[in-house]
Structures are given as C-alpha cells and as structure tokens.
C-alpha cells in the first residue's frame, strides 16, 4: 500500500530525466525496506526545520496561559459540584421513593410448610381449643335441660308430699324432702302441677 502510494507520488514528484531525477530509483522511505530517506524527504525535513521562526514566550502568552488554567480549574470545580449535586439529588429521590410503611411491604408469613414438617404441633392446639369451648357449653346445656326435667318432674311429688305431709311421712315424702331444694318452682306456679304430675306419671 505504501509502495503504491509512493509510486503514485513518484509519478507526480519526478522531475527532469535520467540520473538527475530526484526519485530515480523510487522513493525509499524510512518505513519501507530501506530506512534511508530519499532526497525529497530529506529536503522536506530540512525545510520544516528551516521554516521555524523565533517566537518568544512573552507576558501576553503567560497571562493567557494563567487565564486558561484558571478557567479550566473553575470548570473542573463546577463539574465536581454538579456531580455532587446530582449525587445528592439522586440519593434524596431514592430515599423519597423508598417505601415508608415497612409492614405493608414486608413479606408475608413463611409459606405453607409440608404436612410432614413440624406443622402438626402448632396445628394441634388450635384444633383442641375449638373443641374445648363446645364441650363446656355442652356441660352447661346438659345441666340446664336436666334441671328443668328434674324440677318439673319432681315438684309434683313435692307438692304431692306436701299435700300429703299432714298424713304422715311416706317414702315419697322423704324423697320429696331431699328435693325441697328447688321449692321455688313449687310455689312459683301451681298451674304447672298438672303437667308435672302428668310428666311424673308418664
């Protein structure tokens, strides 16, 4: 590629004829097979060096340089400040958007465990506790139904014995004495006696 380019250059660069040509054998360059620069290249380098005109680093240049340093320093500081502001703003926004109610977003209770796991232990008490309360009402309910039946069935005997108390003690009278505990029913309503009698006999 380079040779092609140089060949092209040679076409334009060759002047004169014969051995006086500048690039008679082609332009060997420092980057080519030969490191020896050709005449044109030597002359070019020479011309570049010779064209240098003296320039002095004066106060004007120094001032401009200082001003450039100051401007760049300011720009750096501004960039750093802007970066800090952006970082703080981002942090603030992040905190603002952070959920406040931790309970809402807290993950729910651990998922259901397998049936074989120690889950039966915690599930045992709940199953027993529900059964407990029903039993308690049952006892009371059994007492309550029993009590009316007893009171309703016995008062007739009580009334009977009380009515027959004047005649003398009877086996039923002794029994009625033991059942004198619920006498209120006895005095409560005389109208109940027929039914109680019926129930007793029945």
């Amino acid at each position: 590629m380079e040779r092609g380019v140089q060949g092209e250059g040679m076409e334009h660069g060759v002047r004169g004829d014969g051995g006086d040509r500048v690039f008679a054998d082609g332009p060997p360059t420092r980057s080519g097979a030969s490191d020896r620069p050709d005449v044109f290249e030597s002359r070019l380098a020479e011309l570049m060096h010779a064209s240098r005109e003296p320039a002095r680093f004066g106060p004007r240049h120094r001032e401009a340089l200082r001003a450039g340093v100051r401007a760049r320093r300011r720009a750096r500081a501004a960039r750093r400040a802007a970066g800090s502001v952006l970082a703080v703003a981002g942090l603030g926004l992040g905190l603002f958007l952070w959920p406040h109610g931790q309970t809402d977003d807290r993950p729910s209770a651990p998922g259901p465990r397998p049936a074989v796991s120690p889950a039966p232990d915690p599930s045992g008490p709940p199953s027993s506790t529900p059964t407990g309360p029903p039993t308690a009402p049952e006892t009371t309910s059994t007492v309550l139904p029993d009590a009316p039946t007893v009171t309703t069935s016995d008062p007739p005997t009580g009334t009977a014995s009380s009515t027959a108390g004047d005649d003398g003690p009877s086996p039923t009278a002794t029994a009625s004495e033991t059942w004198t505990a619920p006498p209120p029913t006895d005095t409560a309503d005389p109208s109940d006696t027929p039914s109680s009698v019926i129930s007793a006999t029945g």
Binding site: M1, V5, G9, M10, H12, S31, F40, R43, L47
Partner: peptide
C-alpha cells in the same frame, strides 16, 4: 500511521514539486 505519512508525503511531492528542486 505509516499509511498516513506515506500518503501525505506523496501529496506533498505533487504540491512542492517546484519548491524542492531536483538535486544534481
């Protein structure tokens, strides 16, 4: 880089042909 330099020199050969005179 080599290609840039070679192309640049080739172009300068055209442009400076009358400045850089052939040497004897």
């Amino acid at each position: 880089a080599r290609s840039h330099a070679a192309r640049g020199v080739a172009r300068l050969r055209e442009l400076l042909a009358d400045v850089i005179e052939p040497v004897g």
